[in-house]
């Protein structure tokens, strides 16, 4: 689940460019860098709240953009909680109740485990190229690296965010920062990606910080601990049966 988010933010692949590429080209390059067939990762999320921060650890299996399965491993309270995303549906399983609950409607807007991310954020279709018109609007430096600044305008109705700005590493084609705006131009969310690491020939950001810009607070950190790309994932893992 988390994983889809990371995925869309990370979506990319490296290929050095000599002249300024078009927005679409950059998006494709990002996609090439980040899009692996399958991804298996262990990660943790550090959420800051009124009572200090807490850490949630989990393992995720994902395939493409459509299918993802997450199992929480820590803290003990959340251990055994599983989430399954199949296309636009999301289920959650809690071992203590032995119930599978589909997260729909109103609940999709709730924050995930108290983080600055909602279930909906996680459900978002990561395919930016088909939903947004991208153009390069500037150059900038983020974390000491030269970046293209991409502006993405929603191509049609129904996108969660009307405008996105993405700062993309010119060499590695990894997004290093993303800002999400409403129709009125208001900055709603900011994501910062760092600790870009070479994994199986791809550049991956291993730390991502999400921040709801309207809310006070430090935001939510997402840290990838291990990541395996293109390893085989058993087919049955992406089924409701695997939740229980």
């Amino acid at each position: 689940m988390k994983n889809t988010i990371i995925y869309f933010i990370i979506t990319s692949i490296v290929s050095p460019l000599f002249s300024q590429p078009s927005g679409k080209e950059i998006l494709n390059l990002i996609d090439k860098n980040l899009a692996a067939g399958t991804r298996i990762m262990t990660a943790k999320m550090i959420i800051s709240g009124a009572r200090g921060s807490r850490t949630i650890e989990f393992k995720t299996w994902a395939e493409g953009e459509e299918r993802a399965f997450t199992e929480y491993t820590n803290p003990p309270r959340e251990k055994g909680t599983k989430m399954l995303k199949l296309e636009d549906k999301l289920w959650i399983f809690s071992p203590s109740t032995d119930r599978i609950i589909q997260i729909t409607g109103q609940m999709l807007r709730q924050s995930v485990m108290g983080s600055d991310l909602s279930y909906e954020d996680m459900m978002e279709d990561p395919d930016l190229t088909s939903h947004y018109n991208a153009s390069v609007i500037a150059s900038d430096t983020v974390q000491g690296r030269d970046c293209w600044v991409l502006q993405l305008n929603a191509a049609g109705e129904g996108e969660a965010y009307e405008v996105r700005k993405i700062w993309v590493d010119r060499e590695r084609f990894v997004p290093l920062r993303e800002e999400l705006f409403g129709k009125s131009g208001k900055l709603l969310k900011r994501t910062q990606l760092s600790e870009v690491t070479r994994i199986q020939g791809r550049w991956y950001p291993m730390k991502i910080v999400f921040k709801d810009m309207l809310k006070a607070g430090d935001g939510t950190q997402f840290i990838i601990e291990t990541l395996r790309l293109d390893d085989p994932v058993p087919e049955n893992i992406f089924s409701k049966a695997s939740l229980k």
Binding site: E157, G158, L188
Partner: peptide, 16 residues
């Protein structure tokens, strides 16, 4: 004051 809402299609927006 900042207010955030979603339109018919679920797109977020916010404004003061």
């Amino acid at each position: 004051v900042a207010v955030r809402w979603r339109d018919e299609n679920g797109t977020f927006d916010a404004t003061e």
